[in-house]
């Protein structure tokens, strides 16, 4: 026994046969493959849609993601949506941020952050006006992680206007991480808006030190 040459053209029991590849089967399409009983076929379908996004691909992927319980398929769908990387793809993921499933929420945050900022930002910005402060915090985290020329203005707008201190703190933290001293006037005004809040004072002090290179 010991070292043996791999068998050519053979498959293990776990390997799906050729019919499991939806892109290779003319009787089915990738959309159909997303509902296949075999998780391997669903993963293949998601990847096929990422490689050649057909009309309706994004809603099909997002629709499957909502009900998918196989982690490998879920990851393949999220990765496909990141690879598609359009505003439509970002907008399809954002509603999942209010799900109970923390793992899914985190995966959505990570996925939207990996999309091109120019495509994702317009989908994220409306969330800054959402009545749920938790969703506004998610929006701030997403915008703070984006490499976008308007990031500073968006985050400054939050610290100047948002009524919820936790949303403002999230934006203050994101502004501090930009390292851009232009954010300081907004942060100073934040300290005046919440004069009795020690966390605000701490955050603004930390940002001040950071901008001054301390």
């Amino acid at each position: 026994m010991a070292l043996v040459k791999a068998k050519k053209n053979t498959t293990t029991p776990s390997e799906p046969g050729p019919a499991a590849d939806p892109a290779a089967n003319p009787s089915t399409g990738p959309h159909t493959g997303l509902t296949d009983a075999d998780p391997a076929a669903r993963r293949q379908a998601a990847r096929a849609l990422a490689q050649s996004p057909a009309p309706g691909a994004v809603p099909a992927l997002a629709g499957r993601l909502v009900v998918e319980d196989d982690p490998g398929v879920r990851e393949a769908i999220l990765t496909a949506l990141v690879r598609i990387g359009t505003g439509e793809a970002a907008a399809a993921l954002l509603p999942l941020l209010d799900r109970e499933d923390a793992g899914l929420r985190n995966a959505v945050l990570e996925s939207v952050q990996q999309m091109p900022a120019a495509a994702a930002a317009p989908a994220v910005l409306p969330l800054l006006d959402h009545p749920d402060s938790d969703l506004r915090i998610f929006a701030v985290q997403l915008l703070g992680a984006m490499s976008h020329p308007e990031r500073l203005g968006w985050l400054s707008g939050v610290v100047e206007r948002d009524a919820h201190v936790n949303v403002c703190l999230a934006a203050a933290e994101a502004l501090a991480e930009t390292g851009d001293p232009a954010a300081l006037p907004s942060l100073e005004r934040l300290a005046l808006r919440f004069p009795g809040d020690p966390m605000v004072g701490f955050s603004v002090d930390a940002a001040r030190r950071r901008f001054q290179g301390g």
Partner: peptide, 10 residues
């Protein structure tokens, strides 16, 4: 246990 198994190296 190298002789107990058939080992494929890819």
């Amino acid at each position: 246990r190298v002789d107990d198994f058939e080992i494929e190296l890819h």
